[in-house]
Design a protein around this nucleic acid. Structure first.
Lengths: 120, 120
DNA sequence: GTTAGTGCTTACCTTTGGGTAACTGCTAAC
DNA sequence: GTTAGCAGTTACCCAAAGGTAAGCACTAAC
């Protein structure tokens, strides 16, 4: 899809808006990206993840993990050993989020500087 | 002790997380990006903007416009003519959001396709 | 046998976000 | 003079999000 000039017809605009909403739905909210990053940092177990994110309750973590799994960003592995072990791991698919994360991080950084400088 | 691939020390990681939170705070939520896009499409007046975004109430629009103005993304111009006219316009600064918007839109699009294909 | 840990779920309560509708002060049109 | 539009603000209410705490089934340590 070429974007050499700005295409502004109704269809493409609505589609773009919906796509944006989808992104926000999947990775938005207080915790989703923090959880993904916790997993990237090597945490795999439920309580381990929870401890790595201050303020995150078990209830919320439980729900967020289900959402992330449903969207293919993480995988839940159950090892039916004597004490059942559950592991959460990021999938290769979650790497596709890189550009989004980078964009968010760099814009946030420069914006924070702008605000700190008292530009507004 | 440098890791040329990925730097994962505590400081840089926390900073990145905060930057991300800032981004979400500024452009997150149901309406902010939709409002920006409405302004980009040439709408300037309060009621005009509201009518262009179905489901958006005056109360919420009022609040969102204040937030966006506080973050320098839009400007509120008051013309003290006989009937007072108020105009909202996007600032050049809001163009810096381009990379973020593009990243969100393209990831959302490809993800929607993945889901529609029933990959998960 | 009591304590602690794991991986959650459930019930309960509070906070908030957002919707609805009314109302302001002003002007212009019918 | 009644209606309609502009640019909001305010009060009221509801539903959803999220925090707290307890509980469950199991195991391992003290």
């Amino acid at each position: 899809m070429k974007n050499s000039e700005k295409v502004h017809d109704q269809q493409s605009c609505t589609a773009a808006l919906n796509a944006m909403s989808d992104s926000f739905y999947v990775i938005g909210g207080k915790w989703k990206l923090r959880i993904i990053i916790s997993l990237r940092n090597g945490h795999t177990r439920f309580n381990e993840i929870q401890r790595s994110i201050p303020g995150l309750s078990a209830k919320v973590l439980s729900g967020e993990l289900k959402d992330l799994e449903a969207n293919g960003l993480i995988e839940r592995k159950v090892y039916a050993e004597t004490p059942v072990v559950v592991e959460y791991v990021i999938t290769p698919y979650s790497d596709t989020l890189e550009p989004v994360l980078n964009a968010l991080v760099s814009w946030g950084e420069q914006h924070r500087n702008k605000i700190r400088e008292g530009v507004f």
